[in-house]
Write a protein that binds this DNA or RNA. Structure first.
Ligand SMILES: [Mn+2]
Ligand SMILES: [Mn+2]
Ligand SMILES: [Zn+2]
Ligand SMILES: [Zn+2]
Lengths: 140, 140
DNA sequence: AAAAGATCAAGAATGATTCTTATTTTTATT
DNA sequence: AATAAAAATAAGAATCATTCTTGATCTTTT
């Protein structure tokens, strides 16, 4: 029952452009890697994965691609302390749970309908444009 | 009505040890700087502040002091993306709001009695040991 | 086809942080 | 109090993720 076919178009019918960003071979493979393996990889991780398909790609290009994808709102950066940045193609509002027992990072969603003001003491007039929530712990 | 006297003992009656960490002159000044100026400074910021009191202190020592204070649970590190770490002496559970209009970082507390499960979809068996919440935006 | 623009590869540069080592200070022991 | 052992500090080197620079290559427009 293993199925790694999400809704990722293959090379032939992959859109030539996403959110105004031209999908070059490198950007496409970087993006596909993120979509197929939702493990919040680092740039190095992506580099190693993508080299299988594009053996000549450089780490700098992986950084460039990731940056371009982030700038165009196609993927998001995830930060854990001072570790290398990680990348996530899940665009829904969510936080991250770093399970220290397995090392895996899980997406955590907010309960439907919850507003920030429901659980935070926000100074009057606060306009929040971005939320980053990181949880650490383990699965009992 | 200016009062920068919080509950920060002065040099004479400053505890010789906190949480099992010996309070050397350097550690004391670093800690006092954080307590007196609650602006979430970087190590560089602390370095520049503390040099007024201990002109011979080195940046490496400031890093060492901050690290020792963090390890002993006396202060906390705060992360904003890939920027330099910042330090916070507020030990109550709280998040941070980076006000992009003023550049200031504000402590944000949770509403009393709120539990994580109240607003997050947590997988069953999740044991959370640490929460990091970062908000970005502006004060209208 | 030519020109302009965008992307890429490779390696150098940057900057925050950590590490190394010699020196100084503090604490424990005689 | 003197001595030995342990801890902390200062200074600078090393590290590592990330960014920058530059020349080559690919795309799009004229
Ligand atoms: Mn591989
Ligand atoms: Mn100053
Ligand atoms: Zn995610
Ligand atoms: Zn704080």
């Amino acid at each position: 029952m293993v199925s790694n076919s999400e809704n990722i178009p293959d090379a032939e019918n992959f859109p030539a452009e996403i959110n105004g960003l031209r999908m070059t071979r490198q950007r496409r493979e970087v993006y596909k890697s993120l979509m197929e393996n939702r493990v919040h990889p680092t740039a190095q991780d992506v580099f190693m994965e993508v080299k299988d398909k594009l053996p000549q790609i450089s780490l700098a290009t992986v950084y460039n691609c990731l940056e371009a994808l982030v700038q165009h709102g196609i993927i998001r950066q995830v930060h854990f302390d001072r570790e290398s940045c990680r990348y996530c193609p899940n665009l829904h509002e969510h936080g991250h749970f770093h399970d220290h027992s397995t090392g895996k990072i899980h997406d955590i969603t907010f309960k439907p309908g919850v507003k920030l003001e429901d659980f935070l003491e926000l100074p009057a007039g606060t306009q929040i444009t971005n939320i980053e929530l990181t949880l650490r712990g383990s699965l009992a």
